Every structure is written in structure tokens, then in C-alpha cells.
Simulated scan of single mutants.
Amino acid sequence: MAKLVAVLATTHHPFFYRTSTLPAQERPAFADEWVRKVETYRETLTRVNPDVLVMVGSDHFHQLWLDNMPQFLVGKAPFYDANFHNEEREFGLPRMLLKGHEDLSAYMLREGLDKGFDLAFSNELRIDHSITCPIITVRPQNDLPIVPIYTNIFAPPLPQPKRFVQLGQAIREIIDSWPSHLRVAVIGTGHLSLELGGPRQFGPHGPDPEFDEKAVRWIASGDIEGALSEVTLDSLWQPGNATHGFMDFMLMMGVAGERKADHADTLDLFHTMEAYFTWYPNGVDA
């Protein structure tokens, strides 16, 4: 059977690529610390030598819109074009081509349906920065095939937070049962408190530091029940208008199980809290 070797949950700041590639004299004051933290985080994936990456993200209204928004979607293409024109223009992100893993995609879709998730699928999915930014930060050589899984965190009606946790648990079970010798890592990206286009967008820190502190504690300690006891679709509007992305972190907690993270780190990046977590479900040397 396949082996789940690592679970990574991270934010996906689109300006990291541009910031990290600036000449030294042009870098902002926080750049070196940001790069150092990302490089340390990258090593948590490198050390387990994965063969395939299951990537959990959310389309930022690039390919999916209010008139056609699946709640949970599995990509099942052999290759994925990645990054859109506005991401090149606004964030300096490069165009990318990601290789797919069709066998695991098909298995994920079939088993997910049988576990009670009416998953959508796409053979023509194009990937945006919710997945390319984690590739850039933790696997910049872009040499591993992926299985992209998109969640709906933007277009109401949204799934309940517990449904994200349940999907994470199902993904874990599916990987554990996959008849393969390959080593699988799951990488998911979400948000802590976040404001997009609203009055709290570019403050001195994330729009709700109190929520960020609790969220980091829930994730780092694997406190799924604690998160579920306080997080609702209505409550997530309060920390910022884009904070529903935290449900992707909850999905990753479902994959990891109720256990303490083996790596937990944050960076207060003036307008948002960046966060990086890794779990080794079978031990670091598995």
C-alpha cells in the first residue's frame, strides 16, 4: 500500500516569489527572515522523499465562478497549466506546467464517491496560486506529479467546517488504502484571518490577531474539536472577509489527525500572519 509520509499545511502568499527573487539591495526588511523560514519549512518535505503530492487549494475565481462552483473538485489531467495572467501581472508569478498523477486522481475520485463525497472532477483544470505558491516554496524544482483538490471557500453556499475535516479524514483513508508502493505527501493551503478589498486589508498585522493566535494553537496542537466548537460559517466573517480559507487548514487537520504538529512556525507579515505546519503521520524516518 501507499505510504503517507508527510502532511503540510501552509498559507500561500503570492508575493513570496517576487520578494525572494529581488536583488539584496531591493528587498524589504522582512524578506530575509521570510526566506529563512520558508527554506526551513521546505526541508520538512525534502527529508521524507515523496513521490507524489496531493495538493489542496481553492480557485480564486480564475476558472470557477459563481455560476459554476463545485464544493470539492479533483483534477484528473495528465498535465496542468498553472498561473493566470493577472497573477503574472500583479504578483510576478511565472507560468508553470505541473505534471498530474492520473492513477491517484482516479483512485481518489472513485474512493471519495464511495465514502459519501459527491466529488466533481475536471480534465481541463488550470491551477492558480493557491497551489503554485506552495510548489514554489516547498518544491521549487517542480519535479513531482500532483493530484489537485479544489475546495469552495468563496462562493456561498459553502460546506460546513466539519465537512472539510471529514474530507481530510477521507483523503487520509484513501491514501492509506491506495494499492501502490509510492510515498505520498499532502500539502494544503488556507488562510488565517484575512481581509481582501475591505477596510482592514493592509493593516499593521492580520485583521484579527486574537483569531490568529487561537487558530495557530488549534492547528499546532491538533485540536480539531476545539476548532469545530468555535468555528462556524457565520463566525468566520468576523476575523476578515476572506477568513473562510481557514477551513482548508481544518481539512488538513483532518488529514493529519488529532496530533501535535512536528513543525510549527509563523511570521507576522504586517497585513497577514503566515503559518507553516508539518506532520509526519508514520514518523520522520518512515
Rank of each mutant, 00 (worst) to 15 (best):
R95S: 13
F91S: 00
L45H: 09
E102P: 00
K99C: 01
E90L: 00
R47E: 11
T40H: 11
H101I: 10
L97D: 10
F72I: 08
E88K: 06
P78W: 13
L98F: 06
E87G: 06
P50H: 04
N86Q: 14
M69C: 11
M96S: 09
N83E: 09
M96W: 07
D59E: 10
E90Y: 00
A77Q: 04
F61Y: 13
V74M: 10
L64G: 02
G92F: 02
E90A: 04
L73Q: 04
L98I: 11
D103Q: 12
L98A: 05
L98C: 03
R89P: 02
F79I: 14
M55Y: 12
D59F: 07
S105F: 05
F84A: 06
V52L: 01
E43G: 08
H101D: 15
D59V: 11
L97F: 07
A106K: 12
H60V: 00
P94L: 06
L73N: 03
V52Q: 01
F61S: 03
V54C: 08
D103M: 04
K99Q: 13
Y107Q: 08
L93Y: 01
T46Q: 10
M96K: 09
P78Q: 11
L53F: 11
D67V: 06
L98D: 00
G100D: 03
V74C: 12
F91L: 01
